[in-house]
Design a protein around this nucleic acid. Structure first.
Lengths: 219, 219
DNA sequence: TGTACATCAGTGAACGCGCGTTCACTGATGTAC
DNA sequence: TGTACATCAGTGAACGCGCGTTCACTGATGTAC
């Protein structure tokens, strides 16, 4: 699963965003310290006030040390975004592989609630996850990371849909996969942002999506 | 309708974001020129490179002239965001008032497709609408504008739901209203960003939402 | 209708600040023999 | 196991730039009589 998701990282970006892979232990912990500091700062001061100097300071480094690993601040954010997407996608792929999309409606609803909940959990666990999640909608570089992740999920969902609905045209299955993925994401975002509503909204969203698939052939 | 939506503008913001209302004709056209320039720049250079100096230049002004109307760049963006939300909300309120949520499922699906399409249209028509739509997720000030708009829509939707489902608990209706509003928004966002998919995704989204309400009492 | 004055709209020039980034360097770690 | 050397990790100090913002001002428009 993780291997498949890794593929998208290999695309050579038009602007330099490549991180330098750390070799020594000291180096690796510095790399992680930068990411952790960035996550914290996203929460504390927001994306717009975030700067490389600020990240370096919070990570206990001088600016040039940061530049040893990241060519600019977007490279840092990209790494955070990729990790978040990977963590989310892994949960989803596992859910599909374990038959989350199969079985009777009630069973599928329960499994869907479960997978939504786990995506919420991994997002909250990631440093600055909630905020990275937001910024990915705006910054072009991060948008791409998000789009790639969505594409991967949609392709995986479609594979399952083809088996389940062999008579439904491919194009429609793609629209369905896309729609339900985004609807799920929307519900997850509400849940991440507003913990009070989390359980209710995820339960209803799961019901909505499963119901939608139930009606797919009837219409 | 517009009057009701206006209410949220009156909230005194904690940080100074108040615009100065133009009096003379010349002044009003300058005000509009600033907004138009900002919309264009959002599209051309993106939110992150946007600056007050840049806006002023594009609008054919010197920076101090801009400061006569807007205390800072967030005030400009806030004005754009409020206009966009107002335009979107007005469409939705009109749809509800005209019975968009009433009638047989097939009829409701058709009306829902229509309202989604119109929201897409007003978003595309607004200067920089697509980009304002994105940034509203991130910048705190604009997030609030978005949240207020959502709240207003959810309240309006709920009013209708209460009549339709008098036996369903209030809390559940709120979750339902929230969920379908956000799901609709997600579909609209895809449609705005990817015109090729627009018709298909909006049709399926409308079906999903109407189907969901059909199952609300059965579950 | 014409003039004097008040108010409004916009300018030119400049400011301090923090940004991203780079330089030549020192200190820490790993490796070969 | 000890030493010499190569490589890696991080520093101190500074840079040019464009940012948001302000000042004292000039020119344009509206108004009273």
């Amino acid at each position: 699963l993780a291997k498949e998701a890794k593929v998208r990282q290999k695309r050579p970006p038009s602007v330099d965003l490549d991180t330098k892979s750390p070799l020594q232990d000291r180096s690796r912990s510095t790399f992680e310290a930068v990411l952790a500091a960035t996550g914290e700062l996203m929460r504390d001061v927001g994306f717009e006030r975030l700067s490389t100097n600020m990240i370096a300071e919070r990570a206990g480094l001088t600016p040039p040390a940061l530049y040893r690993y990241f060519p600019n601040k977007y490279a840092v954010l990209k790494e955070l975004a990729e990790r978040l997407m990977q963590a989310q996608d892994d949960v989803v792929f596992e859910w599909i592989a374990n038959g989350g999309m199969d079985g009777e409606p009630d069973e599928r609803i329960a499994k869907t609630i479960w997978v939504y909940g786990r995506v919420v959990d991994v997002t909250r666990a990631q440093p600055g996850g909630v905020f990275v999640n937001r910024v990915m909608r705006v910054t072009p570089v991060l948008r791409q990371v998000r789009v790639d992740s969505r594409e991967l999920v949609v392709r995986n969902v479609m594979e399952r849909l083809r088996l389940r609905y062999p008579t439904v045209p491919e194009a429609r299955l793609e629209t369905a996969a896309r729609l339900t993925t985004e609807a799920g994401t929307a519900a997850i975002e509400i849940a991440v942002e507003e913990p009070d509503l989390a359980d209710d909204i995820l339960a209803e969203a799961a019901r909505m999506v499963v119901l939608y698939y139930e009606g797919l052939t009837a219409y």
